[in-house]
Amino acid sequence: MARIIDITKNPDEAIAAALPLLEAGKPIAMPTETVYGLAADATNPAAVTAIYETKGRPRFNPLICHMADKAMAERYATFDPVSAQLADRFWPGPLTLILPLKEGSGIHPLATAGLETVGVRVPRGFSATLIKAFDRPLAAPSANTSGKISPTTAAHVDQDLGERIDLILDGGPAKVGLESTIVKVDGDVIRLLRPGGISADEIAAATGLEVVRHDGTNAEIEAPGMLVSHYAPGASMRLMADMLLPGEALLTFGGKRLPGIEYALGIFDLSPSGDLAEAAASLFGMMKDADATGAKTIAVTAIPSHGLGEAINDRLARAAAPRTPETTGQKHDDQ
């Protein structure tokens, strides 16, 4: 059973409890502004292996390495001018940059899935303080069983992984609620590998460069969150619903109600006022709540696709994708 420490009340106790576990190569759950992460020493192969085993995550799927600040990131990865500009603009924050690894960086190949690049992020708040105290990057995918809904509270982590880890650091509900945006600078364009907490429009405005969306034709996994099926509840997902069927739960937006709503096992409005930031922060928690109703299907109304809506719709599409060995990555993991 995991020990849970409230970092808002006992930050020093939290760091004192976390550091020995990290030194011993054991993963812990830590809060970030995006979602809760399952964190372990990115330079220790046993620690990285423990992340994969705890999550049941395919080992070809790379992990984001979290740094205390840009200076720390520069010890491990090489920045081109545009990536440096993005780091200066959006760090600390929900942006991951895919960068070339420095030779002899010390980040273990298990964390990068053997790639010569690494996903790097500087989170806001307590997690950066913990990383600075540890003085090594923490590989930290979302603290949940692989492919399931990402956790935005310590309680979510405890319900899923509480029997498999020793420590959960509780920082309250995640403020952003969606994983980080992942980009890779490629010449004079920026490739968006995963939409997230910073919109493509913000990135384009900050750099003056075109942001090109990943079209799904490249089978190579370059970054987390690129599997077709991901973020999935136990129930199936039915998107763009215009009516509700008996026995379904409803995930809605902006106060929208559907014909057949009287059949709903539960009604969950991501943002009654139609605020996309509020919807992003609510998404994973409300997906869990809808799943807990016992509905076999969660019907989802249309969500605007601009700004953070792009990331919300990305997560919903992956949650609704067919769950096969090919789409979840388990086929690749077995090979």
Rank of each mutant, 00 (worst) to 15 (best):
L209H: 06
L209G: 04
L209N: 06
E210T: 15
V211T: 11
V212I: 15
R213S: 15
H214Y: 14
H214V: 08
H214W: 15
D215F: 13
D215V: 12
D215P: 09
D215Y: 11
G216N: 08
G216V: 08
G216C: 09
T217D: 07
T217Q: 09
T217R: 07
T217H: 06
N218I: 11
N218H: 12
A219F: 10
I221Y: 14
E222R: 15
E222S: 12
E222G: 09
A223C: 11
P224G: 08
P224V: 10
G225S: 07
G225W: 01
M226S: 02
M226T: 07
L227D: 06
L227C: 05
L227F: 02
V228E: 10
V228P: 01
V228I: 12
S229M: 10
S229K: 14
Y231G: 02
Y231S: 03
Y231L: 06
Y231D: 00
A232G: 07
P233G: 03
P233R: 01
P233I: 01
P233D: 05
G234P: 00
G234K: 09
A235R: 00
A235Q: 01
A235F: 00
A235M: 00
S236R: 15
S236H: 13
M237C: 04
M237W: 04
M237V: 13
R238I: 02
R238F: 02
R238S: 08
R238Y: 03
R238D: 06
R238N: 04
L239R: 09
L239W: 02
L239N: 02
L239G: 05
A241G: 03
A241K: 01
A241Y: 00
D242Q: 14
D242I: 13
D242E: 15
D242K: 15
D242C: 10
M243L: 08
M243P: 03
M243F: 11
L244H: 00
L244I: 07
L244E: 00
L245N: 12
L245R: 15
P246A: 07
P246E: 11
P246Q: 10
P246K: 11
G247M: 11
E248N: 05
E248D: 05
E248P: 06
A249T: 01
L251S: 05
L251F: 07
L251T: 05
T252Q: 05
T252I: 03
T252Y: 03
F253N: 10
F253W: 14
G255R: 06
K256Y: 04
K256S: 07
K256C: 06
R257A: 15
R257Q: 15
R257G: 13
R257N: 13
L258P: 04
L258G: 06
L258T: 02
P259S: 08
G260D: 04
G260M: 10
I261S: 03
I261R: 00
I261E: 06
I261A: 06
E262D: 15
Y263V: 00
Y263T: 02
Y263G: 00
